[in-house]
Computed example of a mutant assay.
Amino acid sequence: MKSIINTALSQYGVTELVGQKHNPVILDYFEKIGHTWVTTDETAWCSAFTNWVALECGKEMSNQLTARSWLKVGTETKQPDIGDIVVFWRSKKNSWKGHVAFFIGYSEDKKYIYCLGGNQNNQVNIKAYPIYRLLGFRKLNNSITQNLTK
């Protein structure tokens, strides 16, 4: 089975294109997870990227394009490992907006969480997010399809 972190890292640096053109790699994330209606890389794609990585690794997916949909996938954990899902709020804690990425680690002062994700400054990269915006960590289980092939 493919490693989540290695699969996500394989996309490091994938970036939105400015202007009328759209990065076919980003559009492929949407297509592979079944959201073929998306035709622009300006569509928020952090969840599409996370779903694509999960699909490539045989893990369960949210199948949705909202970051907070990941709060219902997998198993909640308070002790994340590298590659676990991390979900943050955006705008306001009680809004529908959020961000989803893969956990890398904490800053030395524990005030930030480093994450590997898509649509972080319009690209796949590692970025620090303030811990006060954390909504939760999730461990992904193998997908049903993956379990049937074991």
Rank of each mutant, 00 (worst) to 15 (best):
W89P: 08
W96L: 13
T36M: 01
I26V: 10
A44L: 07
S107W: 12
L134G: 13
Y12C: 01
K110Y: 10
Q146E: 15
S62L: 03
W45M: 03
K59A: 12
E56F: 06
I126W: 02
K72G: 14
N23F: 08
T7Y: 06
I82C: 08
N6A: 11
G98A: 05
A67Y: 06
K150T: 15
A101F: 02
L140P: 09
I85L: 05
Q146A: 15
Q64T: 02
N94W: 12
Y112G: 09
K78D: 10
Y129S: 06
C115G: 05
W70Y: 05
G83K: 00
W37Q: 15
V18C: 10
Y132L: 09
A128N: 09
F30S: 00
T66D: 03
R138Y: 05
G117S: 11
Y114A: 06
R138D: 07
E56C: 12
N51F: 04
G58Q: 06
S95G: 08
S69C: 00
I144N: 10
V14Q: 01
K150L: 15
M1Y: 07
Y129F: 15
G105L: 02
S69Q: 00
L65F: 08
I131K: 15
G105N: 08
N94Y: 13
Q120F: 04
K92V: 13
D41A: 03
H22A: 05
N141L: 08
N51P: 11
V86W: 00
Q79Y: 04
R133F: 07
S107E: 10
L71T: 02
G118H: 02
K59Y: 14
R90H: 14
W70C: 05
N6M: 11
F103M: 07
L148Y: 02
F102I: 01
H35W: 00
C115S: 12
Q20K: 10
K32M: 10
M1P: 07
I113V: 14
N142A: 08
L17H: 12
N122C: 13
K150Q: 15
A67H: 01
Q11L: 10
T39C: 03
K110G: 13
H99P: 09
N23G: 09
S95T: 10
I85H: 01
K78I: 04
F49W: 06
N147C: 10
D109A: 14
S10M: 06
F102L: 00
Y129L: 12
A101D: 01
G58W: 02
G58C: 05
T75N: 04
Y12G: 02
E16L: 05
G13S: 11
L71G: 07
